[in-house]
Design a protein around this nucleic acid. Sequence first.
DNA 1: CTTGACCTTCCAGTGCAGTGGAAGCCCTAC
DNA 2: GTAGGGCTTCCACTGCACTGGAAGGTCAAG
Lengths: 157, 157
Amino acid sequence: MRIGELAARSGLTAKTIRFYESAGVLPAPARRPSGYREYEEGAVDRLAFVKAAQAAGLTLAEIRDVIMVRDGSGAPCEHVVALLDTHAADLDRRIAELTALRRQVQRLRSRARTLDPAACSPAAVCQVIPTDAVAAATRTAGRRDGQQRRGRGAAHC
Amino acid sequence: MRIGELAARSGLTAKTIRFYESAGVLPAPARRPSGYREYEEGAVDRLAFVKAAQAAGLTLAEIRDVIMVRDGSGAPCEHVVALLDTHAADLDRRIAELTALRRQVQRLRSRARTLDPAACSPAAVCQVIPTDAVAAATRTAGRRDGQQRRGRGAAHC
DNA sequence: CTTGACCTTCCAGTGCAGTGGAAGCCCTAC
DNA sequence: GTAGGGCTTCCACTGCACTGGAAGGTCAAG
């Protein structure tokens, strides 16, 4: 089948499928004389796996590694289980961070109700966010290094 | 004071301070004849506010808006409270998503213990991640608006 | 023979908050 | 007069998963 049909059958766009090929999660298919990609049935399953693995929180780079193990030495199950464990730990940490941040926001929000809007001084910009209180609480949490986003789901619609 | 001293006093780098100026969260200071930035004391407070607002989950764009309200019409408290409410709702949503994902990963992980590694077929890549199970669980989950962050990093291999 | 859907490649941009580095000026101490 | 540290600007890059668009080739129907 051509890329358009694969896109329709997998629920992805043709553009995304080409991107997946370049990302190494989908093998480069045969080409027609015209240059058009010609996919076999297996491509649908492969894309289903990619979607399922993404939904389980794996990145494309991780999925690519899993697939390379699969296409090389054999069953990647151990590797996958290790990835799941790592992601579970990441999720626990992130959930704890976000929960702490949520509590902090709630505290600020509640405190705001007790403040006099007129008492807000330009120097502090806004007294609802005191310049000394929050820092410690979320210093570990709201750090901004690695992206995440996971949880995806509605990611591609 | 020059930018190096402000950096030391605020706990940021000079580079970050210049970036904040370009992002509109720190007003452009006076310049010495040499072109060096010359900051007043207030800049320390301003940067403390920016850090506190970031710790409370606000983005630089939101902080810039708050500051523009402050420097314009007056007290931005209402605006800030609205932002806090929005972020609280975002956090609730994201925590729920991540919690659902966490449960799903746990399910896959548990199920993996019952599987025979030899039964893994190349077509499915890896039976630990079934191509039909996960989708529904996180389908409702992550919109891409709220960035997550957090250090995933190549935890595998 | 043309229309239009479909396909190709390549380049660039998105969002977020910075970080890295190059090329070059300023200032003080030795 | 030179060594150094600090400062300036500008551009590019990070991570992640796409998405948009341009310029052009392919193919079947009318």
